[in-house]
Design a binder for these strands. Structure first.
Length: 236
DNA sequence: TCCCCATGCATATGA
DNA sequence: CATATGCATGGGGAT
């Protein structure tokens, strides 16, 4: 099962030849449902001034990327960025206003990525989305879920059932429109499917917090894949 | 008031 | 001198 993590509407500074993409600090859907946590959880945690190469599989097939994942100190906060994104941007021909969507494969733990042109997004969009296209920036859910620290401390996944499912916000529908796929089916079983796929609270916690790298190594990629992993230097 | 993030810009790197 | 890197600044939206 693929979990949608976040969507970034690309800006000039994301698609120019610098080759880095500033990541949004949007919440992961599941975590926004369970807790009120933000940003630093939809990708592996970075220690102080830590950075590393993050393998990311292309959902379009064939390609595998390797972005340098790091952050910039910013006042008391952080700005997260992917570096070495030039080849990805070029493969999809992404320009300002297009989208980068990230997912995580819950079976393999691979991070997955795809680019969506704004024009394609319009193709998937419903009327409402089209009408408010200017607001399709970084997608977040309504935060209707009550915080429940008790469930966390008790370590009981079953407590999850006590949460109200969030409303399917307009933005969530927009994310689906851009993705061209449904993250949640009609009876809201999307979240319960996710939760049921874990057997314990620790599993959920590990899954989202673990600094463990995705199960992608140079050993299980073809040479063709590897050729796309390398970050192209300017002018090469 | 807070904080996110788009981009400016000073410094480092290196051709 | 050109480009890459690492952070700072400030507008604007959320709280």
């Amino acid at each position: 099962m693929m979990v949608f993590l976040f969507c970034k509407r690309l800006q000039n500074s994301d698609v120019n030849n610098v080759g880095r993409i500033v990541l949004p600090k949007v919440d992961l859907i599941l975590f926004r449902l369970l807790f009120k946590r933000s940003a630093e959880i939809h990708l592996p945690r970075l220690l102080d001034h830590e950075s590393f190469m993050l393998p990311v599989l292309d959902m379009d097939g064939g390609a595998a990327w390797s972005f340098k994942y790091r952050y910039w100190p910013n006042n008391v906060s952080r700005m997260y960025v992917f570096e070495g994104t030039g080849p990805f941007i070029r493969k999809y021909g992404l320009q300002t206003g297009d989208y980068m969507l990230m997912y995580k494969d819950m079976v393999t733990w691979n991070y997955m990525i795809r680019g969506v042109k704004a024009s394609e997004a319009e193709g998937h969009a419903n009327q409402e989305t089209t009408a408010t296209e200017g607001n399709m920036d970084n997608l977040v859910l309504n935060d209707n879920a009550a915080g429940n620290d008790d469930a966390v401390e008790n370590g009981v996944v079953a407590e999850v059932g006590a949460f109200d499912l969030p409303d399917v916000s307009d933005n969530f529908l927009k994310a689906e429109s851009i993705a061209g796929t449904s993250f949640m089916n009609d009876d809201d079983s999307y979240f319960s499917d996710i939760l049921n796929s874990f057997s314990s609270w620790d599993e959920i916690k590990d899954y989202y917090y673990s600094p463990t790298q995705p199960n992608v190594t140079s050993d299980n990629l073809s040479s063709k894949d590897l050729s796309q992993v390398q970050v192209r230097k300017q002018g090469s």
